[in-house]
């Protein structure tokens, strides 16, 4: 059996669903961010796989993948900074405990 596009898409879909599940069930902000990273990487796998299998002269997907990696890094850096700030102020990064703003 050769490894084809479908295999990559299935891996990406599994990553997407895992990430989505993580984002919905985790109460810890860092946990939610790990879910976000999974979804972003699922998109990256999709982009690269589509480029490889759907045409030899395609480059858009590869370029997009690089942009997504940079985007994920920037987002992670900022998110962890915000989490540190939250921890300093609230002594927790549990999103359910951050509940002073409501109504």
């Amino acid at each position: 059996m050769t490894i084809g596009l479908t295999h990559y898409l299935v891996v990406a879909a599994v990553m997407f669903v895992t990430g989505l599940f993580t984002m919905m069930t985790k109460r810890n902000a860092i946990g939610i961010l790990i879910g976000v990273e999974l979804v972003l990487n699922a998109a990256t796998v999709n982009f690269v796989a589509f480029d490889r299998y759907l045409g030899p002269d395609r480059l858009d997907g590869q370029i997009t993948a690089i942009f997504v990696i940079v985007l994920a890094a920037a987002e992670a850096a900022l998110a962890v900074g915000i989490c540190i700030n939250v921890y300093k102020n609230l002594s927790t990064v549990d999103v359910d405990r951050a509940n002073s703003l409501r109504g």
Partner: peptide, 9 residues
Amino acid sequence: AEASLKYMI
């Protein structure tokens, strides 16, 4: 801090 956490997530 709380607002930025919610917005960011």
